[in-house]
Simulated assay, not measured.
Amino acid sequence: MLVELVKVSKFPWSPWLAQVRTPFGGTAVRWCGDQAAKPGEYHVEWTVDEDIAWGRNAKPAVGVGPGVRPGEHCVVLRGRLDLTVDGAAVLDFDGSQILLDLADPPPEGVDGTWVELFIEREKIALYPYEL
């Protein structure tokens, strides 16, 4: 996915964080690229390093379409949830696929629906790559 990197910064209590913008929102998340990265456009892969538990950090989305925004103490990702045959899940995030680990099977009927994930910003990572 192509994002606009606004800045990379570090606070004493956190990993390196990137302030990013997308056409459907922006937020700060863990940055796994060059700590001296300059502002500009970067192709990135998104990862989520937290088990998804329906009703705890996942729920039906308010609205449709991809979205990303800061929450109170988290980042909110909105995408379409696709369940895999092996018990995992994938969040379709504007054409980018984010592999998710499920703590428990989600309720029936959520496969293919828009969901919102509420994830700590340190548990969402961006990995820049070159095309």
Results as ranks from 00 to 15, higher is better:
residue 83 L to S: 06
residue 10 K to G: 09
residue 129 Y to E: 03
residue 111 D to L: 01
residue 130 E to V: 15
residue 2 L to Q: 14
residue 82 D to C: 06
residue 26 G to S: 13
residue 66 P to K: 03
residue 89 A to S: 08
residue 80 R to V: 15
residue 18 A to K: 10
residue 73 H to R: 14
residue 129 Y to R: 12
residue 119 I to V: 15
residue 115 V to R: 00
residue 45 E to M: 13
residue 51 D to W: 01
residue 29 V to K: 04
residue 70 P to I: 08
residue 89 A to W: 01
residue 74 C to Y: 06
residue 49 D to M: 09
residue 78 R to F: 07
residue 50 E to H: 11
residue 93 F to S: 03
residue 99 L to Q: 07
residue 84 T to Q: 08
residue 46 W to Q: 03
residue 113 T to M: 00
residue 22 T to W: 10
residue 102 L to D: 01
residue 39 P to I: 03
residue 82 D to S: 11
residue 83 L to H: 06
residue 113 T to W: 00
residue 128 P to Y: 09
residue 97 Q to W: 01
residue 108 E to A: 02
residue 76 V to C: 12
residue 48 V to H: 01
residue 38 K to L: 10
residue 11 F to T: 14
residue 85 V to T: 10
residue 101 D to Q: 03
residue 84 T to R: 09
residue 66 P to D: 06
residue 43 H to P: 09
residue 97 Q to F: 05
residue 25 G to D: 12
residue 123 K to M: 11
residue 88 A to N: 12
residue 118 F to Y: 12
residue 120 E to T: 06
residue 57 N to R: 07
residue 50 E to A: 14
residue 47 T to H: 11
residue 91 L to E: 04
residue 110 V to T: 04
residue 86 D to W: 11
residue 81 L to A: 03
residue 94 D to W: 07
residue 118 F to E: 07
residue 98 I to P: 03
residue 40 G to P: 10
residue 125 A to K: 09
residue 72 E to T: 14
residue 96 S to V: 02
residue 41 E to R: 15
residue 2 L to E: 14
residue 86 D to G: 06
residue 27 T to L: 09
residue 18 A to E: 10
residue 85 V to K: 13
residue 24 F to Y: 15
residue 115 V to H: 00
residue 77 L to E: 06
residue 65 G to H: 10
residue 131 L to W: 08
residue 84 T to P: 04
residue 73 H to E: 14
residue 128 P to R: 04
residue 69 R to E: 15
residue 32 C to M: 15
residue 101 D to Y: 00
residue 122 E to S: 12
residue 84 T to H: 06
residue 89 A to M: 04
residue 114 W to H: 00
residue 51 D to R: 04
residue 51 D to T: 04
residue 128 P to E: 07
residue 20 V to W: 06
residue 18 A to F: 12
residue 98 I to W: 01
residue 118 F to G: 02
residue 76 V to I: 15
residue 115 V to A: 01
residue 35 Q to N: 09
residue 28 A to R: 14
residue 8 V to D: 10
residue 109 G to F: 00
residue 64 V to Q: 13
residue 82 D to I: 11
residue 25 G to R: 08
residue 122 E to L: 06
residue 68 V to G: 05
residue 81 L to D: 03
residue 82 D to W: 01
residue 32 C to H: 05
residue 45 E to D: 13
residue 84 T to L: 12
residue 16 W to Y: 15
residue 34 D to H: 03
residue 46 W to G: 03
residue 34 D to L: 04
residue 58 A to W: 00
